[in-house]
Design a protein around this nucleic acid. Sequence first.
DNA 1: TATACCTTTGTTTACGTTGTCAAATTATCC
DNA 2: GGATAATTTGACAACGTAAACAAAGGTATA
Lengths: 334, 334
Amino acid sequence: MSTIYEVSKLAGVSLATVSRVMNGSARVSETTQRKVKDAMEQLGYRPNSAAISLASKRSNCIGILVAELDGVFFGSMMSGIEATLREFNKHVVVTAGHSDEKDELDGIEFLRTRNCDAIIVHAEKLTDAQLIELAKGDIPLFIINRNIQEIANRCISLDNIYGGYLATKHVLENGHRDIVNISGPDYKMDASERVVGFKNALEEYAIDYDPERIFIGNYHQESGAAAIDHFLEQQIPFTAVICGNDQMAIGAMSRLRELNRTPAEDVAIVGFDDVSFAACTFPTLTTIRYPIDKMGQQMANLVLSKVYQIKISTQIQHSFEPLLIQRQSVNAIG
Amino acid sequence: MSTIYEVSKLAGVSLATVSRVMNGSARVSETTQRKVKDAMEQLGYRPNSAAISLASKRSNCIGILVAELDGVFFGSMMSGIEATLREFNKHVVVTAGHSDEKDELDGIEFLRTRNCDAIIVHAEKLTDAQLIELAKGDIPLFIINRNIQEIANRCISLDNIYGGYLATKHVLENGHRDIVNISGPDYKMDASERVVGFKNALEEYAIDYDPERIFIGNYHQESGAAAIDHFLEQQIPFTAVICGNDQMAIGAMSRLRELNRTPAEDVAIVGFDDVSFAACTFPTLTTIRYPIDKMGQQMANLVLSKVYQIKISTQIQHSFEPLLIQRQSVNAIG
DNA sequence: TATACCTTTGTTTACGTTGTCAAATTATCC
DNA sequence: GGATAATTTGACAACGTAAACAAAGGTATA
């Protein structure tokens, strides 16, 4: 592997000049540039990123902490972030927090040790206070999927409360009154916010809120099924199910079918996220769109502007609105 | 940020000794170790990975190229790889090739520039020859999902031919004779191999192979639907559909429903991959399991042993077998 | 007790860039 | 034509660690 030194020798210029040609940090005459570029070409020169990092004190690497590397939701998020960052030659280091406090802290520490220039976290177990504290550290921290007042300019989030409200209102408007809710884990901010929206909608329709009508799932398919079993066992009547995400929604639909209750026809179902398979379930799933890919892009832009002082053409949008996507899983009754 | 130098000063030892304590590269007495560790603790010392890379000529970073960062299949793969590597304090840099030759080459070049110690590629557009050529480069290349004779010890793959055979044989055993195939893009090795398996099974049952009965899709849901439209338009009769992956399978099921043909009952469907939602479709999807998470783990082990000389307890498995998962989407006829 | 060997520690250089400062060259102005 | 300013280039010291080599101290052996 050739180095900048060999390039400079072959081109007959100094180290500094080669460096300048590489990153355009200062004007270099046309002729000199040509010489340097030719030499680089000829040697098949490739810069050593470690040396660059060491000398410049920047790694050009952004850490991302997600709950799980699989999972359609996180996939979209990473995809949105990576595509944008890569245009600017930044790269992405990912790690998983497994919805566990220790793993999340470990993950962040791991990324710090890697000298990432910034860390984007989708934290689930860490509290706002912990995140605020971490944000005071030496390396810039950005939060996706949560809005923390104290560091709002480092957050990009969705109005989950409104999302929960939209979902619930939709079934109410379709005449449903016996509504149950399959929520995500209550320690997850987004899950509990969606439940708040659920309650708000009920209140608007003057329906008493009954805590029994909420099942705390884990955002996975199985818990959607488990929730259905639970409600039936407890003999809680329902004609509509509001789900914390699409995966639990398909889990619920699947279980209902096994019990000979037809989704839509017998029970209305609403999901959340609008992941790609939501349009292909049977019946197709009415859900709330969470524009996570766009949010990922915005997060990338935010990092580029704050950390690298790259100016982004458009204003950065910190707050996103959920959107009701009507499909077939909600029928009108009454 | 404190450095190894400050640690050595505070602990009253030399630089080298601090370095030794950090990575256990040589014996250091108990008492000295204590002193050093205390000093590190006290200073909140965190090693500078760029300096480590520069000095040791290893970045402890492994690049992964996948087609898309979203997508359940790649998610499982990355998850399997990352979890294993992180145990050994290696980190993962991911990038997307978008099933495009230029993007794939760019992606690999990008990862090389990052001085990754190894690159794991899930290539779709690059040819065997190109990969063999790339593997000759300075940085070790590993291939997942393809078996290339010349570099077989760097490959981890699944017997896709057998998978296609299993899927097809299953519907044949259930009495189906009018079988169509919705394949992935023909430039994707795995897709065309599955078609070979499809043909093999037909041959075993003495059924003539008809190229009209193959539709080339793109592994996405929409093309599953498009395939159904195509076969109906062409008036090709079929009672069973073999799909190149689960996503096209649900796309096909979804479209069949729209046309009032009930999956399983009217048309048997077999998927491929066994992604998580396959168990939650209606009817639940009979499919071929692709143990991609395990394969990812094995790949990580392979890299650890080949690149870092870390000895892995178990033998590394280069070749995996697909498995038929019987669910409800295939009914017997005749 | 002297010798050889092993264990533990220290010294020093190399790693490949960037960035600062100074020098050299060229352009501009009166 | 000379002085001054602007542009372009060069020399060299960081950056923070690993690793090769050397030295010191301790222990076992004869």
